[in-house]
Every structure is written in C-alpha cells, then in structure tokens.
C-alpha cells in the first residue's frame, strides 16, 4: 500500500514538469529576497502570467554576483531568458560578457534621480545607501559623512565588506565620490569607529545591529520604511548626510541566446508597469523605478530625501574598482 502510494507520488513528480511545459516558459535568474514568498517575485509572476500565455520560472541564486558568474559559466547554453537582480556595480562586467541583448523598452516612464539611457539594462528599482541608526541608542546621529568621520571613536558603526557585499562596495564608492583622492586618508580616520566589517548585509543587520551591538549600520535609506510600515516602529531611522547619498539602481536584462526573446521583452516592458512596480516599495523595500503617484506607501514620505544623488558611471566603477579597493585595503590594514 505504502509502496503503491510512493510509486504514484513518483509518477506525479515525473509528470508535473511535462504537464507544465504546455505554455511557454520564461526562465528568470534572480536572487533570494526577490523570489521570497513575501517578496515581489510571486506577486509579479501572477500578474504577468495573467497577461501572457506563459509561465515564469525563477531560478534563485545567492546574489547579483552569482547571477553573473552563473551566466558566464553557462555562456550561450544558458537556460536564462531574463536576468533580474544585477546592479550598477555588476552591470558593466555583465555587459562585457556579450551574452545580453538590447531591451527595446521605452524608458520614458523611468523616475530615477539620474538620467538613464542604457540600451541593455532596464532598472526596476533604486535606493540610496545610508547609515541606519537606532534612535534609542543614538538620538543625535552625525549630519554628514564628514561629521561621522570626525566623531569620537566611541561611536561605533557596522559596515559591510566591499569585497563581498553590494552595500559595502556602495560605501567605498560613496567615500570616493565625496573625497576623491583623499578617500584613503578618510577611511583611515573612519577605521577607529568601525566595530566590524561583515561579509554580507544580513550578517551585520541580524547578528549585530539588531542585537544592539552598534547604534549605526550601513544599509539603505529605505530600510526604515519596512520597520515603520510592517514592524510599526519608528525606532530605526536613516541618517541624512549633507554630502548626498550614493545611488544604487537594480536592473534586469534580456539574455541574447534566449529562444523566448519576444516574451522576455514583454516582461521587461511589464517591469515598468504599475502592476510590477507597486510591489516594489514594501516587498523589496526600495524605491519604485516609475512614479507610482498615490500608490506609493505613505511611509516613504517619512524617509530621508537626499539633496544629491552621488553616482559613478558603471564603466568608471568597473575600470577603477580594483585600484580603489586596494587603496581601501591599504588604508584599513596599515
């Protein structure tokens, strides 16, 4: 009896994919928080599948870096039709693989702090890097990067490592943008305040910041939105810095070897529609790439509004990253 049930179960498993193959399948490589049950992934999938006779199949990779690495390894034989979850730091390297196709999406609806005209990458959300602080531990956070650097060393901050994490790299670029060639010196001054440099954002936020280890952590300006909207607490806020904040844009692109290019382009177009974008603010906790008007949750009005968006062209980043990284390492280990 048990064996029979098991055999039936196996049979069902064997036929399940075969059955699903009737409709066209769009394979999307993405990262875990996008595809999470409560992330934008499932909602977007449902909305898009209603407009097309197709099915979205997410393949979840650890990070943007992994998506790129996977794409490089698979080359032209990749199953991916669309890659979603790269950002301005990994964009250029991905472009250089030559594995991506132009999008043909109308970018006029974009509502980013910068002008975006890239032929390959379509942004789907954006945000600023910022230091999030615990108002109970730190009622008066520094008002500028300069003030943070000049603060006494008993103000502790948690940052992420630019060698292994996106926000970490963001801070590196932020410092570079503000201080240019003086960045290394400023890093050396900042060093005494850095409690630790974690591998990933999650390690720092969960293990350290939420345990109260330091009152400030490198994060996103949108982080408080989640705490305010879902956790219903104003305790965690982002500190607004006078010099401006470094911008991160998350992008998607079409894979050149895809046999579902038409569908893929439809998906990229759909990405800039309200049906996709409305899931971004609270489910991805970032700014939507288009103007959502009244649909933007009200907590977003309470977030900091940086006066200037700091941004390096992806090409500049890709050309200089290694050198800037080495300067940073030097300054930090001296």
């Amino acid at each position: 009896m048990l064996i029979r049930a098991f055999a039936l179960f196996l049979l069902a498993l064997a036929f399940a994919p075969a059955h699903a193959q009737k409709a066209a399948i769009l394979t999307v490589y993405t990262h875990p928080s996008f595809a999470a049950e409560w992330g934008p992934g499932p909602a977007v999938k449902e909305a898009f599948e209603q407009t097309c006779n197709c099915q979205i199949n997410y393949v979840v990779l650890d990070s943007g870096g992994d998506i790129l690495q996977r794409l490089r390894l698979e080359g032209k034989s990749t199953q991916a039709d669309v890659v979603l979850g790269l950002d301005t730091a990994t964009m250029e390297t991905t472009r250089q693989t030559g594995l991506l196709a132009n999008h043909e999406t109308d970018l006029s609806a974009l509502n980013l702090p910068i002008n975006w005209q890239d032929p390959v990458f379509v942004p789907y959300d954006w945000g600023y890097f910022a230091f999030v602080y615990d108002t109970e531990q730190l009622p008066n956070p520094p008002k500028s990067l300069e003030a943070l650097i000049a603060a006494p060393d008993d103000l502790k901050i948690i940052i992420q490592d630019p060698r292994t994490s996106t926000p970490g790299l963001g801070l590196l670029l932020w410092m570079r943008h503000v201080y240019g060639d003086q960045a290394a010196e400023k890093w050396a001054q900042l060093n005494g305040k850095i409690l630790t440099t974690t591998k990933s954002w999650s390690d720092g936020y969960f293990s350290l910041f939420m345990n109260g280890e330091a009152p400030m952590i490198l994060s996103y300006s949108t982080s408080p939105a989640y705490h305010m909207a879902v956790d219903k607490t104003d305790r965690y806020q982002a500190a607004q810095f006078e010099e401006g904040h470094y911008l991160q844009v998350e992008v998607a692109a079409l894979v050149d070897s895809s046999d579902q290019k038409k569908l893929g382009r439809e998906f990229l177009d759909f990405m800039l529609s309200a049906d996709f974008q409305r899931h971004i603010p609270l489910k991805n906790v970032m700014y939507p790439a288009t103007d959502l008007g009244d649909e933007l949750p009200s907590v977003f009005d309470k977030l900091i509004q940086p006066e200037e968006a700091l941004y390096f062209d992806p090409k500049t980043v890709s050309d200089n990253r290694r050198q800037w990284m080495n300067e940073w390492l030097d300054a930090m280990t001296r």
């Binding site: 875990p32 999470a36 049950e37 499932p42 999650s202 989640y226 489910k283």
Partner: peptide, 16 residues
C-alpha cells in the same frame, strides 16, 4: 523559488 530552511532564513533576513 521554494526555499529550504536555511534559504528561508536568509530570505527573511534579506527582507528585514
């Protein structure tokens, strides 16, 4: 898309 326990843990972390 369906996570295992550790993946679920990281997904939850990634979404605050």
């Amino acid at each position: 898309g369906q996570p295992t326990l550790p993946v679920l843990l990281y997904q939850q972390l990634g979404s605050y």
